[in-house]
Computed example of a mutant assay.
Amino acid sequence: MSHELKYPFGNVTIHDNYVIAVMNEGITVTPELNDVLEDISEQFFTNKNFVYITHRINSYAVDPNIYFRTSKIQNLVGFAVVTGKKIVIDNTELESVFLTKPFKAFSKLDDAIIWANALCK
């Protein structure tokens, strides 16, 4: 299963065990955008675990308060950040403090996908 959703803030691709989000350049990810993730959880992953993968191709800001709501999505079993930039990987350490789910940074998308599939087994 692969299904692409387009939003004003970016694109989300749905797969069997995970979603991959690519946010638009310059946006700020706020807690209000978490409504979209909650809707995706309900629509595509009813009674099924999944992992959220954010592929940080573009530069954008994240309000860490979003993770308090993200942590409440019961069937979300992991959160991955994919980036090739060391400074972004360093920033994810701060972000991980706000999330109560497994949180991991990767430099390659394929590695994040392997991790996501393993978490969902």
Rank of each mutant, 00 (worst) to 15 (best):
I87V: 15
M1T: 10
Q74C: 12
S59R: 13
S96K: 13
V77T: 09
V62Y: 03
H3V: 08
H55Q: 14
Q74N: 15
A80M: 06
A21W: 00
F106Q: 02
P102D: 01
G78W: 06
L37C: 02
S96Q: 09
H15E: 12
T13D: 04
I20A: 09
I113A: 11
S107F: 11
N47H: 09
E95I: 00
A80G: 14
E93H: 10
S41C: 07
V81G: 00
T30D: 08
A61P: 04
L5S: 14
N47R: 04
N49D: 15
D90K: 12
Y7T: 12
W115P: 02
E32V: 02
L94H: 12
A21N: 04
A118K: 14
N117S: 07
L5P: 02
V62A: 05
A61C: 04
K48P: 05
H15C: 06
L94G: 13
T13I: 06
E38F: 05
N17A: 01
V77M: 06
A112R: 03
T70K: 07
S59T: 04
K6P: 07
D35Y: 14
I57M: 02
E93R: 04
D16C: 03
L109T: 03
V62N: 02
T92D: 09
F50D: 04
K72E: 08
V82A: 08
I113E: 08
F45K: 08
R56S: 03
A21L: 10
N65Q: 14
L5W: 05
F45N: 06
S59Q: 14
E93S: 02
D35M: 15
E38P: 04
I57F: 04
V62Q: 05
S96V: 10
I14Q: 06
Y52W: 03
T46P: 08
I14Y: 05
K104L: 12
I89Y: 10
K48C: 01
Y7D: 09
K85V: 13
V19G: 06
I27D: 11
E25N: 14
K108N: 14
S71Q: 10
I27Q: 03
E42A: 11
I40S: 00
I66P: 03
K48Q: 07
K121Q: 14
G84P: 06
E95H: 08
V88P: 01
V88S: 07
P64E: 06
R69S: 14
V88L: 10
I66M: 00
E32K: 07
G84N: 10
H55R: 10
A116H: 01
N24V: 02
C120I: 09
P31T: 08
N34T: 15
R69A: 08
M23I: 14
I87Q: 15
S71M: 04
H15M: 02
